[in-house]
Nucleic acid binder design. Structure first.
Lengths: 196, 196
DNA sequence: CGTCGATACGGACCCAGGGTCCGGATTCTA
DNA sequence: TAGAATCCGGACCCTGGGTCCGTATCGACG
């Protein structure tokens, strides 16, 4: 219930300020967990009360940031051209979807990290995960000969988890393009198997 | 450096007591994060100081518990009979390894969960992950026609992440055997692809 | 068996950080 | 422009991980 927006001018201005400041902070700081709520409030020039009233709790703020960043991709997936859009043939669309997720996580490492570990609630009860999963699953179901599409969707998405991506990009020093190629290759292999 | 064991009788006794108590607590409580260090100390009949001296920090305690539980599997993998042991043919061993990991996580849900989210440090910098990964990778490399074995090993292991397993077993109500079958099927598909 | 140095014990204590509260300021409505 | 509704913000609370240090215990040695 702490989610409904206010129409009061100062409220929306502050909400905006917080979003902007938080975005900047997460981008600048090394690890997402050393950007504290007090930091965000201070950076936004706002009191903690305001911050929490606007977003409920830390997870709420993260979700809001995440949703904003995700918006363009959501658009591209829902109404865009192939291979991301709904008119693409399933075998092309699956790798494209995974690639989009991967790129998103590469571009928003800290944020995705912060949201996925989140201290307590797993990413699997987040609604945005649910969306990706059911979409991917639906696409997989259109590919003949594939079984266990629900599980397969989970397993494929698991390969794009933020901390794995972070690990590979960070300690592993794997460049972006290589990682994309590997994921695409992996997805292809999963889809490829005809009768073995 | 807070890791070297003591030989003093009371010290080992207390260490044992803590391990036992913690094990019981994690098994009993719903979520791993509402078993606090103070709880563990109290349940073990020991002061917090003792607890922290013996294990360094929370992660240290988790690691110790984990290692104890993992020991039999490690044995089976390193010196046991096929299909888990080193003499098994790679195409059989990969699914077997994954199955072993999955079963372990099913049998130790809370513990694995606690260790993998761990608040801060990702599971990917844990040494036990490193071990599974390099083993799996080595086995994959023995399979002709497979490329990107490093990444593939990561991706396969990602399908056994504790929170995913928890999600599937919990909200998804997927029975153990079905999950094992799905994972095996998935692994098989990944390995199956000849020239596409 | 008594003494003594080394080691461990344990709970009071510290601190960070998420989240709450409420008196006062601001904004909308009439 | 009065009054009500809403919002502001920072002082405050609380939980939980981690530390400290005076005291109790251990075990080696005489």
């Amino acid at each position: 219930m702490p989610e409904r927006q206010s129409s009061r001018k100062d409220a929306v201005r502050n909400r905006e300020a917080v979003l902007t400041a938080a975005d900047a902070l997460f981008a600048r700081r090394e690890s997402p967990e050393d950007v504290t709520m007090a930091d965000v409030a201070a950076a936004a020039g706002v009191g903690k009360g305001t911050l929490f009233r606007a977003f409920g709790d830390r997870a709420g703020l993260l979700r809001a940031l995440y949703a904003a960043r995700l918006e363009p991709i959501r658009q591209a997936v829902e109404t865009g051209p192939p291979p991301l859009g709904p008119t693409a043939p399933p075998r092309d669309r699956v790798p494209a979807l995974l690639d989009a997720v991967l790129c998103f996580k590469l571009d928003n490492r800290r944020l995705a990290l912060a949201l996925e570990e989140g201290g307590g609630n797993s990413p699997y009860q987040a609604e945005h995960y649910e969306r990706w999963h059911s979409l991917l699953r639906a696409v997989l179901e259109q590919i003949p000969g594939l079984t266990d599409c629900d599980f397969t969707a989970h397993a494929l998405l698991a390969a794009t988890r933020a901390d794995l991506v972070e690990h590979l990009a960070g300690e592993g020093h794997i460049p972006r393009e290589r990682m994309r190629a590997q994921l695409a290759n992996f997805a292809t292999r999963v889809l490829a198997s005809g009768p073995l």
